[in-house]
Nucleic acid binder design. Sequence first.
DNA 1: AATCCTGGCC
Length: 864
Amino acid sequence: MAATVAPPAAPPPTSATIRSLTAAGNHAAALRALSSLSASSAQLDHFALPPAIKSAAALRDARAARSLHAAALRRALLHRPSPAVGNALLTAYARCGDLDAALALFAATPTELRDAVSYNSLISALCLFRQWERALDALRDMLAEGRHDVSSFTLVSVLLACSHLPGDDGRRLGREAHAFALKRGFLDEGRERFPFNALLSMYARLGLVDDAQSLFRTTAAAFSPGGGDVVTWNTMISLLVQGGRCAEAVEVLYDMVSLGVRPDGVTFASALPACSRLEMLALGREMHAVVLKDADLAANSFVASALVDMYAGNEKVANARRVFDMVPEPGRQLGMWNAMICGYAQAGMDEEALDLFSRMEAEAGCAPSETTMSGVLPACARSEGFAGKEAMHGYVVKRGMAGNRFVQNALMDMYARLGEMDVARRIFAMIDPRDVVSWNTLITGCVVQGHVAEAFQLVTEMQLPSPSPSSSSSSSSTEEGEAHRCMPNNITLMTLLPGCAALAAPARGKEIHGYAVRHALESDIAVGSALVDMYAKCGCLAASRAVFDRLPRRNVITWNVLIMAYGMHGLGDEAVALFDEMAAGGEATPNEVTFIAALAACSHSGLVDRGLELFHGMERDHGVKPTPDLHACVVDVLGRAGRLDEAYSIITSMEPGEQQVSAWSSLLGACRLHRNVELGEVAAERLFELEPGEASHYVLLCNIYSAAGMWDKSVAVRARMRRQGVAKEPGCSWIELDGAIHRFMAGESSHPASAEVHEHMDALWERMRREGYAPDTSCVLHDVDEDEKAAMLRYHSEKLAIAFGLLRAPPGAAIRVAKNLRVCNDCHEAAKFMSRMVGREIVLRDVRRFHHFRDGSCSCGDYW
DNA sequence: AATCCTGGCC
């Protein structure tokens, strides 16, 4: 190779040269060959032009298409001797993104010069631009002319168009097209499979999986001399998987293989997602083994992505990463990065997801797509240490991805989690059309941020027609709005129910329960678990248990919720019995939260030994390692029982790096209960270091000092609070009557019936004092005289709410009141007293648990 | 004919 030898002059190209270059996919060479032909005009004929035009289309080269159009016009070759050149140009313009040019070309063709291919090209061009109705109009024109034969080519486009028509139109026309294809013999034995496969796909897109399956069952045999067409099998597998019928998809896969059809990349890419959804790790691994034997398959990025997804979906993120790492860098396609990033994010491995995200572009030059963003945004929303949240929003906007619904939904969620509801609402307002996820995301944000009324308002709005921002400007607003209505689904209900639980609003919760029953959602595990939780937190333990017992299946969360429910209601023995039942049953495996629930139940009921037993057997018998929260629970069990030294030694035995805030708070609470100033001071000082801005720590220490009569120290703590700028959350109690929430706060009269309530409280108070009630003034933080202390206690928010309930609740009904903080000693005693005095059951829910007051005593037996 | 995506019960 020392000297460069001039290549021999190429022979002049002919139309045959161009045809073969185009056929070989060598489009650039085909166009070059044509332009050298144009020089010697004689050869530029109606044989040479169509393949060249096809090459221009394949290259999406609009300029080449236009210049070929001009050349054809100059030589009058557009429609003569055949429409072939014009037809090819029509397709080329469409492929280059210029539908108007394609339509103009068709319109300019005299009717008598059009052939069937002209119409086929027009129909498929319209399909390319998703103009489904116009495509079917073109078909009608074609049939009306009466001289064109519908070919398999026509049929495939028409089936595609039918499958995208909204509502019943698509189904009706699709079935008509099916009947037509049968009548015309398109589905006969030995015919090409395109129409058959297209019919399958059409039924898939219309969601008519059963029609697809019966077509497949009755006709596939006719095509299967050697097992049949792999495309048919693949179509069937993927449509079953997409229809959520994964078990059937796996059966089809087995049938296919046993008939001797060799699976290809598409087969694996279609079937692997079934393995993640069915948690069929074994089958997934088998497929992986087959893939590894074939270098082509192993290098197929679709297959590799599906493998990554399969492993990640089966909680084998490390295996997923191994598949990812096995594909060498240049071959790593976008889909693989996306699958791996999403796999990490869905496993909650947010740091890893963010790390890969930052590396994909920087190291591999792979630009993130909308899918990447919707996958990584949840990770970035959750990751507390990640400072670039708003920057991600900017990035999305800069890359032009801010109009993608998935991305918008994920962004909205991120801002809702940040507490920036206004930004979330603004993004929501721009989403068009909104889907059920858009609504659910905003609703969840509202519930989490405490805007429960707004959440319920949104549930009403989502079901109305034309909620989308575009439909006001559009002429066919009702029809379009109809299509954009969203029905609340299991997620919607599940996210609303904690809102009802937080408000202690059982009437609202029952409405949701009713909706769930009407829409066959009450047997959904997540909805069921949320219902069990809601009823329990609204004080209706019997209803909670009834829902639990009626569920067809329960998971670990369902069980945890019920155990917690019994614990909250002071029924520790029942809670522990449920734990034993769960551990013995095998329906669900106890996890960390199960032990938190069981230990909390033991703590509230004074089951110290049972609690310690559970704690010590936890890791040995159930593989649950002690976490900071579990340590805090045992501290609570011991501390509440007055075994403060043992509680203290649990904390000192914790690992140095372990988060000790909750353990110290439990100890501080126990010190207040048992009036231990010395240890309380130790705990409080540690907490002031760890969480200097948390008001409840200061308040507890104040309580300890006040109860001990150490007013100077109490005053000093309150001064320290003020210096630190820490404010106590105001106490607030509320009661639900006739579906409305009535809120009361101490020293405030915003409720319309406030004056009446205060008056009634005064009357009750007077009567209580007469009948021997002695206020417990030890929980008043202010150093004032006893009378003033008593006056302050009289208007505590929970007392006001109870007084309101006594005034307005139906006679004889239990008074159910909820409070945002812990119930104070005096309110506890007063409620006991009142329950006997007025002969009413009073149910008081505080942040942790329930107090059922009946006939002068409390369900918690004063152990709280 | 295909993979990767958003909302979640303690």
